[in-house]
Write a protein that binds this DNA or RNA. Structure first.
Lengths: 235, 235
DNA sequence: CGTAACCTTGATTAAGATCAATTCTCGTGG
DNA sequence: CCACGAGAATTGATCTTAATCAAGGTTACG
């Protein structure tokens, strides 16, 4: 692993080459294939991870097998940092467990492990990282707030419409692509699980929105036909 | 406002008397009555708050009036700190808004406002506060994760059973009270909204659990009749 | 070209929301 | 001390959404 990768990770941006090397020294890189488990929520906590390539899903499973996806982690984003800080003040029985399950969604998903102990020592010396992490946590909290809001206050149609809309707006920000479409990088099954529903219901909802002339679904590509109506439906 | 109050707030614990006074200087105390709004999610961000007495609910409202409670904030806990850190790196259009609504649930609810600007300056000088805040955020993230898990993967009966159970376990930890009961400090309407359901459904669920001989509901007091069955139901 | 993963569609069911009518509880003023 | 009224809670009848069950179709890929 090279420091050039770490540089692209938000919490390490702004560190000197020396500092980056200090971090780099303690890391361990692992590669996973599609469907491989990175960790279960029952495992002892080793440290947090950075996705370098591929895609990772963070999810929970109920007793009877229903799954819900909490986050999808794209390259250069971190996951499972929460337990690092939970036992600063008091000791909690679940502090040394991973808070959810993590699975690779693509072949050749590379992740970097940052072991907990050495990293906390690094943190104590470098307060800049703390502020970055605070900022990262704030973003995640905001994301979870929105997620809860979506799931508890909106029906499936609104959630789907809103998902397409935000993906589109997000794409416009980053990519130079003038087509009025988005491309899913996950299966519809996973998307359903992320939106708090099941595959069949998602399929029907797509069909309905298509019949209303709002979108056009072709495999993993979704074409937006009527932007205004889409916004309206997302409410 | 006195520094003795601040001392009890997690993120300020461990600060020197001097440091506490620095914080104290920038605070502003406000008192609210039951039902009063502390802030709306449409308001510009002034800073974060500490509950000193009473109870505060943090909630979202949908277009058609449905409400969902995200957090209940007890004395000496903070709320609305997230926006403080969202704009450290990049600028976001919604960074300077409160992320949800806040309402006082009891008369004489006292809160302390910590204005954003002076506080961030204080943060830059005092890295110990950052670590405490990270720990606080970690707790909140864990809480939201659980909350999402509850709402998406469990039915209302399980959620109610689990709520009673955790309240009971929580009580045993803090209070010296050997009765096998809990006392709600919020209305059943608010409890329903917190559990992602509505008053009628909660009422029926309590009735069902009562008929099964698991609990006994008398106003705001819930007596646990069969601890094992309760655990089993909470799954 | 065969098979497994992925997706669609239909029929049915179940959980919980909504609507509506009472009842309970408790604080306040007569 | 009682009566009133408002807010809180209960209960019943009905409706809606989305989950479940089941079958078949499509796509991708070795």
């Amino acid at each position: 692993m090279e420091t050039s990768i770490l540089k692209k990770v938000y919490i390490f941006s702004g560190l000197s080459e020396e500092e980056l090397e200090d971090v780099q020294k303690i890391t361990r890189t692992k590669t996973f294939n599609k469907g491989d488990i990175i960790f279960f929520d029952t495992e002892p906590y080793l440290g947090f991870y950075i996705t370098v390539s591929g895609l990772v899903k963070i999810y929970k499973i109920s007793k009877d097998g229903r799954e819900h996806i909490l986050h999808l982690i794209n390259p250069y984003n971190t996951f499972a940092e929460v337990p690092l800080f939970e036992n600063f003040g008091e000791i909690r029985e679940d502090a040394f467990r991973y808070p959810a399950n993590a699975m690779a969604l693509e072949d050749q998903t590379k992740v970097v492990l940052i072991p907990a102990r050495p990293f906390t020592e690094l943190l104590a010396e470098n307060s800049r990282i703390s502020l970055k992490m605070l900022s990262g946590f704030a973003k995640r909290l905001r994301h979870l707030n929105r997620h809860i809001e979506e799931i508890t206050l909106k029906d499936v149609t609104k959630r789907v419409a809103n998902f397409v809309l935000s993906e589109y707006i997000n794409k416009r920000k980053t990519k130079l692509d003038s087509t009025h479409s988005i491309r899913l990088n996950i299966s519809k099954n996973d998307l359903a699980s992320y939106l708090g529903t099941i595959l069949e219901t998602l399929s029907r909802t797509f069909k309905k929105l298509q019949e209303e002339g709002i979108i056009l679904v072709e495999g993993r590509t979704i074409l937006i036909k009527d932007f205004e109506k889409l916004k309206e439906t997302a409410s």
